[in-house]
């Protein structure tokens, strides 16, 4: 008898899984296409609820290559989200670092942080739009506001989780507070901090899009709304899909940066890095 569930998923080579993935994907798409064609009483309703994948692909072609409408909006949304995420991260990490360094500061901001955590921050959207207008800054502000929390919590947690013995070792070496902070605490917290950046980016997209839905001159939120209002659902799906696609690429890049940055968690990278440092020191084995 075996309890299969707790067996970790076995590693199977990509060459064996990829065909199955493609097959399943193809089946899903075909099923979807069929649903659109034969699953509804009237075609308008069908296109409204499940626009045909072929039409979505055509719409993608149109907005990316033929008409090229999507680029402007895509760039606008990414700009807002990334700016917001950066600002939010800077604020969140700044607060977290101050909170770890000063007990007094920590005490004073605690109630505010609890309040900030519980309040649905995205709800401030209409206020920002009303005050800052339909342009870039309302969206950036909202993105930053929703984004700061992830980096704050992660940085704080990472910096507070100190290895007592390591800290004692640093003290016995006569390290200053500053040295202990950078060489030990910050470096040990790096993994969580980097996870915080990813959280910030994800939520910043949400913030930027909501600001655009409320009211904006451009951006993917605007584009999606427009397509829906015109009842061209295939275009709406195409726009949605481009957000997913580029979001996915962005996250893959962030994952990669994270993977390289926290190289000591990965045996292979460790091996390479070790060789690199040996060479750099001019020592050949």
């Amino acid at each position: 008898m075996s309890y299969s569930t707790t067996d970790q998923t076995k590693h199977i080579s990509i060459f064996r899984t990829l065909p199955v993935h493609l097959l399943i994907f193809a089946c899903l798409i075909i099923l979807w296409e069929m649903t659109n064609l034969y699953g509804f009483e009237d075609q308008i309703q069908a296109d409204m609820i499940a626009p045909r994948p072929t039409n979505i692909v055509l719409a993608m072609l149109d907005i990316f290559i033929i008409d090229q409408t999507v680029w402007k909006h895509l760039i606008s949304t990414f700009k807002k989200a990334l700016l917001g995420a950066s600002i939010g991260t800077a604020i969140g990490m700044g607060l977290a670092i101050s909170a770890t360094l000063s007990v007094t500061f920590r005490k004073y901001i605690k109630p505010w942080i609890i309040l900030m955590e519980a309040t649905p921050r995205i709800a401030v959207g209409p206020i920002f739009v009303a005050l800052l207008g339909f342009g870039l800054w309302a969206a950036v502000a909202l993105a930053a506001l929703v984004a700061f929390f992830g980096p704050f919590v992660n940085t704080f947690q990472g910096l507070m989780e100190i290895d007592e013995e390591a800290e004692e070792m640093f003290r016995s070496l006569g390290a200053s507070k500053f040295q202990t902070f950078w060489k030990l605490r910050f470096a040990s917290a790096m993994e969580l901090i980097s996870a915080g950046w990813k959280l910030a980016t994800a939520s910043a997209f949400g913030g930027a899009l909501v600001a655009e839905f409320i009211q904006a001159s451009e951006g993917m939120g605007v584009l999606i709304s427009q397509y829906v209002i015109m009842i061209t659902m295939d275009y709406a799906f195409a726009a949605l899909l481009s957000v997913t696609l580029f979001g996915f690429i962005l996250f893959k890049i962030m994952d990669y940066v994270d993977y390289r940055l926290i190289f000591w968690k990965n045996d292979l990278l460790l091996l390479r890095e070790s060789e690199k440092r040996r060479k750099k020191a001019g020592i050949v084995q």
């Binding site: 899984t17 949400g206 999606i224 829906v228 659902m233 949605l240 979001g247």
Partner: peptide, 25 residues
């Protein structure tokens, strides 16, 4: 192995982006 990854990929899209469609539906 084969279906769950879709959930992960789609989670990249902020669910909020679907709002206009949701309202239409």
């Amino acid at each position: 192995r084969y279906i769950a990854p879709y959930a992960v990929v789609f989670n990249v899209t902020p669910g909020i982006a679907v709002l206009p469609l949701i309202i239409a539906w």
